[in-house]
Amino acid sequence: MTTKLVVGLDGHETGERALAYAQNLAGLIGDCEILVAYIIEWSPYSFQTAEENAVRHKRREEEISTAKERIINPAIKKLSDAGVKTEGIVRHGDVATALNDISKENNAQQIVVARSSAGGFTKRIFGSATSNLVMSASVPVTVVA
């Protein structure tokens, strides 16, 4: 059976480290597929103007294609060049919840993320996406420093 790892990217150098770690792990496991995920932070309970709502569908498509182009596709290319089986996923939602959902849907064995790049005030109040994930995930989570 193929082992599946979910890697959460954040579009920063930190995400690259998580990816590199997962790639290394995949090499050790052998029969392994890496699901590269980028979550666009979004909440169904936010407030928007009527004008924003009217163009929302269009913006969503744009957000997804930008994420694919800039973050997911380069990662996929890097992995497939190295001969690792891979799949890219872009999704809107809460980072921790979405990564956990992806791992459940795909029966993944592990989630690999980097230590959160968010800091300061927001982190103190809401906690980081990474710590939320560690607390709520239903599979083991590896946090790359």
Binding site: Y45, T49, N53, H92
Partner: peptide
């Protein structure tokens, strides 16, 4: 609350958002 919202529509305008926008008017 989103009980009937398709998760694949995440990122689209939710019922809550449409209501909130209308209410702010």
């Amino acid at each position: 609350k989103g009980d009937y919202s398709d998760p694949n529509d995440a990122g689209e305008v939710s019922h809550f958002q449409a209501l909130a926008t209308a209410l702010s008017g």
